[in-house]
């Protein structure tokens, strides 16, 4: 996975970058299965590797497939990224150990979710649709809004472009 990311950062041919992004998404889905998040892994495999690859290719079809050579050396972003990484790693030292049953995340509301109050075996579905249905309503609305935004952006037929062509002629 690390290798895939490094190659993504280096490669300039956007087509291979997009295929690599799909590979990366599948690897991420595998990691998520290993971390017991089966629902999330399923979504990541379908969305990350399936739909977003198709969408990126669709957008690439409308744009140029080759990235321009960067005009300036990337030292400043590199230094900034390194500084951020060091800060974040320093911060992560204060977090609880991996797989610690006493960590705060396992204490608050989770025991109640796992009690199977509404007799739906898949807890993720139960929490998603029942305990936190306001959240899900919000998320659905966000997805809807994004779709509406895309319609607004891309619906307009080529009238402006045709006019520009006429001017050029």
């Amino acid at each position: 996975m690390v290798l895939a990311v490094l190659v993504i950062a280096r490669t300039r041919n956007l087509f291979s970058v997009i295929v690599l992004t799909g590979v990366y998404s599948f690897l991420m889905a595998t990691v998520l299965v290993a971390l017991d998040a089966v629902d999330v892994a399923m979504t990541e495999a379908a969305v990350g590797a399936g739909v977003s690859t198709v969408l990126l290719l669709g957008a690439l079809h409308l744009c140029k497939a080759e990235e321009a050579k960067p005009a300036h050396r990337p030292w400043i972003p590199l230094a900034l990224s390194m500084a951020t990484a060091l800060l974040l790693i320093y911060g992560s030292l204060g977090l609880p150990e991996f797989s610690d049953p006493d960590a705060p995340i396992h204490q608050h509301v989770t025991p109640r979710y796992l009690k199977n109050e509404i007799e739906v075996p898949n807890v993720v579905t139960a929490v998603l649709a029942s305990f936190r249905s306001y959240d899900t309503l919000g998320e659905t609305t966000v997805v809807f809004t994004a779709g509406a935004g895309i319609i607004a952006l891309l619906r307009r037929r080529k009238t402006p472009k045709n006019e520009r062509d006429k001017h050029a002629e």
Binding site: D39, M42, T43, G50, V51, P121, N122, V124, T125, A129
Partner: peptide, 12 residues
């Protein structure tokens, strides 16, 4: 309800 899955995955 019983296995992994739900509305988001099914839609996608």
């Amino acid at each position: 309800d019983f296995g992994p899955g739900g509305g988001f995955q099914a839609g996608v």
